[in-house]
Design a protein around this nucleic acid. Structure first.
Lengths: 219, 219, 219, 219
DNA sequence: CATGAATGAGAATTCATTCAT
DNA sequence: TATGAATGAATTCTCATTCAT
């Protein structure tokens, strides 16, 4: 039906797709991440996800069942990615100061490179985290928290850090100071005359390090 | 059902409303804040706003013109409220340490009491702040930033604070450390075994003060 | 948009409808009866109902809430109609034989004139009568059953009828013998070389009377 | 879940099936009967048929070609079954009263045991019997009709029955009085406070016999 | 013969918006 | 100012059907 288009690499209607379940599923996850991060769960469109993924709407329902389940899968997938990257930092093998610097820089750089991640998380909070299984989330998060605990203990012992810091508190503070300025960059730029682009990021990154290291200084 | 409800203050279908422009407009703003904060801009429903406001959908269009314009009005209104409350702190008349404590506590308590505010702002960031007029926003924000500058200068002079802190940076850091743990409380609670309710808030508030005052300590 | 059609009496897109809630609701009920009777609940289309009713799909949801609720409303409405017509027979004022003849003829003629009624009921049985409220149904049906009981008692007393007939049983038997040949006319015509149209109806009607009066003869 | 189920006879995803054409075809027919009887033609789902049959959707198209053709095959199959069972009654070898009793009881018991049969027929009538080939249907039905004619003639001759009964009329009346109370049992139970389950069936069966034998009594 | 990935045309339902009253 | 009936364009989700393997 209609003339057979032949522009190479462009998805053509009526041309069947790769027939590769794993690839299709992955393409949908990627597409959904972009769509939901850009428009929210309520604003994101399944149609748009299908188009971005280069597949059919029905495939999304075939693989994920519903819009909400797709969102949950996207969340789970993206949490897995960052947790894996955090684990790769191997904080326990670094000197305390280096470990904290590495973790703060990583946290900042990760969301700077993946602003969609924090948008998804903000969106999930709008929905009271109903798409997250706490058991799984806690299990995934415990390695990095315990590594931070180790770093804090070593830092207190060698005089690098004050001794009264809880690793969970530190984690939340680092997340706050790294994520908020990025997720809220648009309103912050509306309010303040901030530098744009990389210069803004550099300034926020420096400030994040300054706040965290300032706070951790021995009393 | 229906027919003869007479519970005062409860809207009945088919019964004409107050005919009070100001009150209706205000009720719509309140209702829209709740709706948009709870479901996002994309997920919020005009129908629901009308129902919450106890008025007719057409009224919303009469007063605000469109869904986006309504969202913009809600944002503007809520920014005005917090800016006014910030101004009322009168930081310039407080000792530097007291002023910072007052501002951090106010910032935290405000979003703890008005979690919808930060949800609206997160939502607006999802939409790249297209509903905000930067000129207005900057003008509204400048008094508090300059007051913080004054506090920092006085604190550096009297030895309370380190001398290298920029007031904009401080503002953003305080916002980060106060807003993020509240706006993201649901995912944080999924990840960590945090206390619930007021105990959680108290812990986050104490941590916010600890981080900011730790950071501001003289070098 | 598009040229303004002006063919008189033809529903034109873009031309608003009558703005008469009662009429619209009624038109939807009529349209839905035809659609569901013709295609079943599963096969009936909301789109088609809207088109038949000359209104917008959204109106259907506005007035009835869902496809199932619409079907339930159609059922309820059509039960009400036949029950009212039955009541109008005023069986108690007729001689026993006349009363039974009137009731059988009425029952047959009603479904002959309203074959959609029995189709709706068959469809409802497919769904195990989940759209019917038994309390309402029983209350609506009791007048005719008790009238039949009165007729049977009088008929037994005056020697017109056998004395061992239960009014409920009679009602069900009359319904069976009147409704089945009409609701199943298509398969019966495929199986037997029956007359067509009115001749078929006349034959079935005569047979219904013959069976019921044959059965009721005194023992 | 999945991975290593070994319950025999239960289908596992990803495990190839029997490769037995006849069995697969039969399983599909059974599954389709249940599905169409339960939800109608419009409401029945090919997906659901495949799942019930423990096979792949493509198999259905392989064997039957389309949904409508599958429905037609189900009808044809189920007509064949009842016609065969009717033939097995061997009415010609029974005394007239015994033959009629046998036929009424058989008709009632068959639909009581196979309520899906009458649902399929009702559904087919909704579609104006377009899935039935009249020639085949008549040929299948003629033996029982002619056997009934023989029974009626013998009954009239020996004084058991009235002499003015047409075998087609009798067949249709018996079908009406036996099938209707079963196919419409749900709405009848909503309308009347009928006994449930087997007690209801026993009552309807007795009434069917009473009506038919009452009707057939000599004038 | 058998599988399940893929498709495209619907189908039910929702929703922002308009308008006669 | 206020109402609620009406609209049309989406939007989520379903389903019969096809096809490469």
């Amino acid at each position: 039906m209609a003339a057979t288009e032949t522009i190479p690499g462009v998805k053509r209607k009526g041309v069947k797709r790769k027939r590769d379940a794993k690839a299709t599923r992955g393409a949908i996850l990627e597409a959904a991440r972009a769509e939901f991060a850009g428009r929210g769960l309520g604003g994101g469109r399944i149609d748009a996800v299908a188009e971005r993924a280069g597949c059919n709407k029905a495939m999304i329902y075939h693989y994920f069942g519903s819009k909400d389940a797709l969102f949950a899968a996207v969340l789970q997938h993206n949490y897995t990615l960052i947790r894996q990257a955090e684990a790769d930092l191997d904080l326990r093998s670094l000197a305390p100061v280096d470990a904290v610097r590495a973790f703060v820089e990583f946290s900042f750089d990760y969301v700077a490179a993946n602003p969609e991640f924090i948008k998804l998380i903000n969106e999930e909070n709008l929905h009271r985290a109903i798409h997250i299984d706490p058991a799984t989330a806690r299990q995934m998060n415990s390695p990095v928290t315990s590594a931070l605990g180790d770093v804090l203990k070593r830092g207190a012992a060698d005089g690098s850090f004050r001794g009264d810091v809880d690793p969970q508190d530190l984690y939340i503070s680092i997340a706050s100071i790294c994520y908020f300025p990025i997720s809220n960059r648009y309103t912050l730029s509306a309010i303040f005359d901030l530098p744009q682009g990389d210069a803004m990021l550099a300034a926020r990154r420096a400030q994040a390090l300054a706040v965290i290291f300032g706070y951790l200084r021995p009393l």
